[in-house]
Amino acid sequence: MASTVIGAGITIEGEVTSDEDVVVQGTLRGKLVAKDAVTVEHGGVVEADITSGPVSVAGSVTGNISSNDRVDLQNGAKVVGNVKATRITIADGAQFKGNVDMDV
């Protein structure tokens, strides 16, 4: 399992940089930069700008999301911030407040 996991109950305050997948089940405040996928699971809280590959959100994100791939806001997701991605899906039940910028 070559990925980084921020487990439930753990809080990281600062900057996380990764060349691999990042899974957030806990809390991350600061900045998140990943070359690969970022997954914010249900219960995960990210108060940070996310720059990464594909992003999947089922938890809470406060901050701008910038992806060079797709962004999926799943049911139960709560996102406040601007989203920049090539593709984006917002599932039924996802809360979203912000601008969407898709490369057209």
């Binding site: 399992m1 996991v5 487990g7 109950g9 990281i12 900057e15 996380v16 990764s18 089940q25």
Partner: peptide, 27 residues
């Protein structure tokens, strides 16, 4: 995820600058 939900893993190509606090295991 396979190692349990309470486990936090900082992968081999990851870099964290800041505080890591909380409950659960950290690898």
């Amino acid at each position: 995820m396979a190692t349990g939900h309470a486990t936090t893993v900082i992968g081999s190509s990851s870099f964290v600058r800041g505080r890591v606090t909380g409950s659960g295991d950290v690898e």
